[in-house]
Amino acid sequence: MKVIFLKDVKGKGKKGEIKNVADGYARNFLFKQGLAIEATPANLKELE
């Protein structure tokens, strides 16, 4: 799953980066902790 990092995550990505991560990792950790959001077309447009 592609995500947009909202904060730096050690060993995974830095704020503003778009990366592929495991679905479970994204849903169970990154999204719940507010560290990333899903890289949907709408979210990508907001990032620009």
Rank of each mutant, 00 (worst) to 15 (best):
43 N>T: 10
41 P>Y: 10
11 G>K: 05
35 L>P: 00
14 K>D: 05
22 A>R: 12
7 K>W: 09
18 I>N: 02
48 E>G: 15
25 Y>D: 07
47 L>W: 14
27 R>K: 11
4 I>K: 04
40 T>E: 04
42 A>N: 12
45 K>T: 10
38 E>N: 03
43 N>A: 10
30 L>T: 00
22 A>H: 15
48 E>S: 11
11 G>Y: 08
26 A>F: 14
14 K>P: 00
17 E>L: 03
18 I>S: 03
27 R>D: 04
40 T>F: 05
13 G>F: 14
45 K>W: 09
8 D>P: 05
31 F>H: 02
11 G>Q: 04
45 K>F: 12
48 E>L: 13
20 N>A: 11
26 A>D: 07
32 K>Q: 13
36 A>N: 00
12 K>S: 14
13 G>R: 00
15 K>W: 03
22 A>N: 13
22 A>P: 13
43 N>Q: 08
38 E>P: 12
4 I>S: 01
20 N>T: 15
35 L>Y: 08
13 G>I: 05
36 A>L: 01
8 D>L: 04
36 A>G: 05
38 E>K: 08
17 E>N: 05
12 K>W: 15
37 I>E: 05
29 F>M: 08
47 L>I: 12
12 K>Y: 15
24 G>K: 13
25 Y>L: 08
36 A>Q: 00
42 A>W: 07
8 D>N: 12
42 A>I: 10
18 I>D: 01
28 N>M: 10
34 G>Y: 08
12 K>E: 14
15 K>D: 01
36 A>K: 00
5 F>R: 00
19 K>A: 10
26 A>S: 05
2 K>I: 14
14 K>L: 12
24 G>E: 15
16 G>N: 07
19 K>Q: 07
24 G>F: 13
26 A>K: 03
6 L>H: 00
30 L>W: 02
8 D>V: 03
14 K>H: 09
39 A>Y: 13
41 P>N: 09
40 T>S: 09
26 A>E: 12
16 G>L: 04
48 E>N: 13
16 G>D: 05
37 I>R: 06
11 G>E: 05
9 V>W: 04
45 K>M: 12
24 G>L: 12
3 V>L: 04
27 R>F: 12
29 F>G: 04
43 N>V: 12
1 M>V: 14
33 Q>H: 15
42 A>R: 09
2 K>T: 14
7 K>E: 09
29 F>D: 06
